[in-house]
Write a protein that binds this DNA or RNA. Structure first.
Lengths: 147, 147
DNA sequence: GCTTGACCTTGCCATGATGGGAAGGTCTAT
DNA sequence: ATAGACCTTCCCATCATGGCAAGGTCAAGC
């Protein structure tokens, strides 16, 4: 790499999908997928029909990756990307999405936690030895109606 | 219903899939599915080729439903059903499964919780007004490498 | 008997995010 | 020119669940 770094503005990167995957942390498979569902637009093609990615698309890929890491669905990410690209957006809208998502996460966490607690209570009362007698199975098999 | 309830041992129920669904809380669709993947064996058929369920199968359905409610996968439930039906089982084996599942749930909960906390921190710092300025989008778009 | 409506059958398709693999084209270094 | 790495598209699988469609069965009322 020559010293072109100094002239940042002129540095136009153009990467193959594998290099873009490497650079973004998103697998090539998923990069194609995101394109197919419309998250990534206007991907260029080389003469040999290879996809080519520039900096702005790398940027989008990293955005997508980070948002997935925070648990946003691809549908939500589409909205977030729209807001990101829209200079006249209101931060209120982004905040609303984030808060709704936090609430969704809280709901899932509570659900998992109540599963976890119920199960660990059962396990705590199980001898865990050679005997067949087992409160865990007894609970699962209980004919008592639960709602 | 006549007074046959008194002679429980002789009371052989035989239900259609819809009635079994009603009685077990498992949808007819899923009852067929569980049969197709081998969780429910030896389902009888009527002359008109309707599935018929007896008490022991209802019992299995309730077992499956309860185990799903605790987050066990169908594969795990197959193992649990095997242990349940095996009078020579060791409770240690059941306990081991339960504890492993608790650990899985803990891992998922931790993952969701760290998402939740990261996102709610971002949201807390977002004005949430008409301005475009938004720390949430800034974070998502950050060019800083994270691992 | 015949009709109606509720219930059942099988089979296929869809979800959401991801990975795997096959068959075939492209590029680059030797 | 050839090998090997990389790319293309297309199809299939996961997991638990639901929906729909075309057609068979059953029970009740006429």
């Amino acid at each position: 790499m020559p010293r072109t770094e100094a002239r940042k503005a002129a540095a136009v990167v153009s990467l193959n999908i594998g290099q873009a995957a490497e650079a973004s942390g998103v697998s090539a498979k998923m990069i194609r997928h995101y394109e197919s569902i419309g998250l990534l637009h206007g991907v260029d093609r080389s003469d040999g029909n290879y996809r080519r990615y520039d900096e702005s698309q790398l940027h989008s890929l990293r955005f997508i990756k980070r948002a997935r890491g925070l648990g946003f669905s691809t549908g939500e990410i589409e909205e977030l990307l729209g807001l990101w690209r829209n200079p006249r957006r209101a931060s209120a809208e982004v905040k609303r999405m984030a808060q709704r998502h936090v609430a969704d996460l809280d709901a899932k966490i509570d659900e998992l936690r109540s599963m976890r607690n119920a199960l660990s209570d059962l396990a705590r009362h199980c001898h865990g030895d050679q005997r067949a007698d087992c409160p865990i199975l007894e609970d699962l098999a209980a004919t008592v109606q639960r709602t």
